[in-house]
């Protein structure tokens, strides 16, 4: 294989590795954050329960 092609492939491979590393870190941090995608549904439920508990008359 041509040396230039080898070099280009190596750089592409490293760039993909670096990009994947950054994307995966960002995704895992977003998922674990309090306002992140994974926990937003449960937060919504908690907020609704709190609201019902603090305003019982309105709920009735």
């Amino acid at each position: 294989m041509n040396d230039v092609v080898k070099s280009a492939l190596a750089m592409m491979g490293v760039a993909v590795f670096a990009g994947m590393l950054i994307i995966l870190t960002h995704a895992s941090l977003s998922a674990s954050a309090p306002g992140g995608a994974a926990s937003s549904a449960s937060n919504g439920v908690t907020l609704a329960k709190d609201s019902a508990a603090s305003h019982p008359a309105e709920v009735k």
């Binding site: 190596a10 490293v14 670096a18 590393l21 950054i22």
Partner: peptide, 15 residues
């Protein structure tokens, strides 16, 4: 390539 690798880990550390 080394700079790309280091940048990826530095970005991870920053995040």
């Amino acid at each position: 390539c080394q700079i790309l690798i280091i940048t990826a880990f530095a970005s991870m550390a920053n995040m």
